[in-house]
Measured scan of single mutants.
Amino acid sequence: MQRVNMIMAESPGLITICLLGYLLSAECTVFLDHENANKILNRPKRYNSGKLEEFVQGNLERECMEEKCSFEEAREVFENTERTTEFWKQYVDGDQCESNPCLNGGSCKDDINSYECWCPFGFEGKNCELDVTCNIKNGRCEQFCKNSADNKVVCSCTEGYRLAENQKSCEPAVPFPCGRVSVSQTSKLTRAETVFPDVDYVNSTEAETILDNITQSTQSFNDFTRVVGGEDAKPGQFPWQVVLNGKVDAFCGGSIVNEKWIVTAAHCVETGVKITVVAGEHNIEETEHTEQKRNVIRIIPHHNYNAAINKYNHDIALLELDEPLVLNSYVTPICIADKEYTNIFLKFGSGYVSGWGRVFHKGRSALVLQYLRVPLVDRATCLRSTKFTIYNNMFCAGFHEGGRDSCQGDSGGPHVTEVEGTSFLTGIISWGEECAMKGKYGIYTKVSRYVNWIKEKTKLT
């Protein structure tokens, strides 16, 4: 034993070699072989497995989906700052455009905790909710729209109204504003409101030439003092309507412009014939205590009207009353817009006519005020429907199939267009061939041609 100890002390290297040989010859039971080890760690190889990531292109799944990435790591994937920024906006807080917040056709661009709407022409605001041009839906104005110097929408209202708090709607500024039905039992019968379409306001006024200088022999019209197929109006439903009495009662109609003036057809009036105007009328054979009678003290036909040349060209006249009318729910003026808007309103496509005229061709006159909704007829169809001249200051309205029309005794009465609950004068009943005849239409004086003249002559002093 002493000898062994001496050998170990003198030859430590020998001992180490012996131990190493023993270990190498022993069977290893701690580690699995290569094949079995792979069965336990069965993990798919990654895209760049075996390579240094710093030297390969980034992978979106590896960089940002398996674990949260930084902007720089995302930049490695896209290799483009702009594309990385677009991805980053949604990656950080989701897609803010998912709810489609942009209105009126706006395009949404996502941002971090926010979004941006790219608005089409005519709109602005956070969600493109603000109209900035009158060309689109009248700028959301209830009545009139004008573009300011910086191309912003400025709404306005006709006389007797003021802008509401929203700067879009119009509200009454006087007790009985024009064009409004205020009798409670008839307010439910107000005709369907007309909503502004998209309009090209630059070209809204037709490029028409008034044929002022045409000389033409007097034409022989049949029954051209021209509501057939209409309905009984309720008291106060058309408070701007008046009836004219002269040699015979209810020979023509008219509309209240203001307390002192009536507008009617020029062919209705004769110099030297006494005319009485009755406002607030409903049943011409009954006294309903809503009527107001006034005498006409002055007749002003349009300066281009000449019955000797043509009885229905420039067929418009103004009547001055001896005493002002007292405005109330049964006696209310009709609204008159400017030339541009009167023309736009007419193009809405349908209007209402009213009167006490004959209820059928050569038949009896109506006792109760009649009204009828009539569609506008395109000019080409209008011209083809008659052998008589249709001037540019006239328009056609009615039904091709016949059966409904204005008729004798309705002449001078109103053709009105309702705009968001307020009625505007767009025409004056003038003439036609018979009444409600198939293929024939009622012919009306186009008020847009005469609004400046009306307003100039009827100013209240």
Rank of each mutant, 00 (worst) to 15 (best):
P301V: 11
N104Q: 03
V181D: 05
G421L: 04
I136V: 09
A337Y: 00
G357H: 11
W453L: 00
C382D: 01
V242H: 00
L383S: 15
N42C: 04
D33R: 10
R62T: 04
E142Q: 12
Q219V: 08
C18E: 02
I275P: 05
G21D: 03
A397W: 01
F345T: 01
V181N: 06
R46M: 13
G421Q: 09
T287W: 11
T290N: 11
F176M: 05
K339A: 14
L425T: 01
T276N: 10
P301T: 10
Y444V: 05
V257M: 03
T194H: 14
G246M: 05
G105N: 06
G363D: 09
D150W: 05
F238E: 00
T426A: 00
G21S: 13
N135T: 08
G351R: 02
G254P: 01
S448I: 01
E231C: 08
K39T: 10
T381Y: 13
G351N: 06
S448T: 05
L460T: 06
N147M: 13
Y22T: 07
G351P: 02
N138E: 03
K126N: 13
W261L: 01
C18S: 07
C157P: 00
D338M: 04
K109W: 04
G13M: 10
Y441W: 04
L319P: 00
F144N: 00
R379S: 11
K311Y: 05
K89F: 05
T381V: 12
Y371D: 03
C335P: 02
K39D: 14
N151H: 11
I334G: 01
L163A: 03
C145D: 00
P12T: 14
I275N: 03
S430P: 03
F196C: 05
Y312F: 12
A337F: 02
G58F: 05
H302M: 02
A307M: 11
A265M: 02
N213D: 07
N313I: 10
Q216V: 13
G253K: 08
Y305T: 02
V153Y: 04
R83H: 15
Y305G: 02
L244Y: 03
A26T: 12
D223L: 11
Q90F: 08
S169T: 10
C252Q: 00
L346H: 05
V278D: 03
N328M: 02
E67S: 04
G125V: 01
K455T: 08
G125Y: 00
G179F: 02
N203G: 11
L20A: 04
E418Y: 13
E124G: 05
R75C: 04
V183P: 09
H400M: 13
K247N: 11
L41N: 15
S217F: 12
Q167A: 07
S169K: 08
A366F: 10
V243A: 12
R404W: 14
V326Y: 12
R384T: 13
Y341A: 07
S255W: 02
V451H: 04
E142A: 07
E285M: 08
E401W: 14
K457V: 10
K247V: 13
N222Y: 10
N100L: 06
N59H: 15
A317Q: 01
T458Y: 02
D131P: 15
A250W: 06
V56L: 12
R226P: 08
R384E: 10
V331Q: 01
Q143V: 01
A397S: 04
E259I: 05
V227Y: 10
E285R: 12
L60R: 15
R298P: 00
I443M: 10
V419C: 04
R3W: 10
L130T: 12
E66C: 03
E79W: 10
C268P: 01
S156K: 08
D322P: 00
E193W: 09
L14P: 08
T287F: 09
K126I: 13
K109I: 08
S114H: 07
K459G: 11
E129R: 01
S99T: 07
L244P: 00
T84F: 04
L367D: 12
A308M: 10
R364P: 07
R3I: 12
T16R: 10
C435R: 04
K188H: 07
A164T: 10
G421R: 09
H361R: 12
N38D: 15
E193L: 11
R43T: 15
F348G: 13
L24W: 09
T218E: 13
Q370L: 03
A366P: 13
T386P: 04
E61W: 07
T215C: 04
V4D: 07
I316R: 00
L376M: 14
F123Y: 12
V243W: 10
N127E: 04
I454E: 00
K438M: 08
T445C: 03
V277Q: 01
T342W: 01
T271R: 12
S49D: 15
E286T: 08
T386C: 07
W118I: 15
T458K: 02
K260N: 06
V273T: 12
F87C: 04
W240C: 01
K152N: 09
I300M: 08
K89E: 08
N295I: 06
S184T: 08
R43P: 14
V263N: 01
K446S: 08
R43L: 09
T276S: 09
E124Y: 07
A266S: 03
R162A: 09
R373N: 11
F121K: 12
G253Y: 05
D405Y: 14
V263K: 00
N38I: 09
V257Q: 00
I210L: 13
K459Q: 14
E67K: 03
G254R: 01
L52S: 15
G280W: 02
E61I: 15
V30S: 15
E288H: 07
N80T: 15
S184V: 11
P324Y: 04
G253C: 10
R404C: 12
T158I: 09
N42L: 08
G160S: 07
V248R: 13
P101Y: 02
A317C: 05
I390K: 06
C117Q: 01
A37R: 02
Q57A: 10
K109E: 07
G355W: 14
N147G: 09
H303Q: 11
T386K: 08
L211T: 11
V296K: 02
V56N: 15
E208T: 13
N452A: 13
S11V: 14
K438F: 10
G439D: 06
Q96Y: 06
F360R: 14
C157H: 00
G106V: 01
A380F: 15
M394P: 01
K293M: 05
D338P: 11
Y450F: 04
F78D: 10
M394V: 12
G363Y: 09
C117N: 00
C97H: 01
A436D: 12
W356K: 11
E53G: 13
V447W: 01
K260R: 08
S187G: 10
N343I: 04
G439Q: 09
F176K: 04
A192D: 13
A173D: 11
L346Q: 08
E208D: 12
N138I: 03
C435Y: 03
A37H: 07
A266T: 00
T271N: 14
N138L: 03
T287V: 10
S25Y: 14
N343F: 03
H400N: 10
P375C: 04
T264H: 02
E193P: 12
R180I: 04
G413D: 05
Y341C: 03
Y161N: 00
L211W: 13
P101L: 03
P177V: 04
K152T: 09
N304D: 11
L376E: 02
F87G: 15
E456R: 12
L319C: 08
L346G: 02
A207C: 05
F123C: 01
Q2M: 12
Q167N: 08
F144A: 00
F196S: 12
G398N: 03
E165P: 14
L24C: 09
N127Q: 10
I15F: 06
C69Q: 03
L367S: 12
V153S: 06
Y115P: 02
P175L: 09
I262A: 03
N138F: 03
C407K: 04
S329W: 06
T417Y: 02
N80K: 13
A149E: 14
S148P: 06
E124C: 03
G398F: 03
L346W: 11
K89V: 08
L319I: 07
S220Q: 10
Y161A: 01
D249P: 08
Q408H: 14
I210Q: 12
E66G: 09
V368P: 09
L32W: 12
T264I: 03
N135S: 11
T287C: 08
K260T: 02
S255H: 02
R364A: 14
I336Y: 02
E82L: 05
C117W: 00
E98F: 08
A265G: 04
T225H: 09
C141K: 00
E61P: 15
R180T: 04
Y441S: 03
G427E: 01
E53Q: 07
E76Y: 15
G409R: 12
D212M: 08
L130P: 03
V228D: 08
K39A: 12
K446N: 11
R75V: 15
V273E: 13
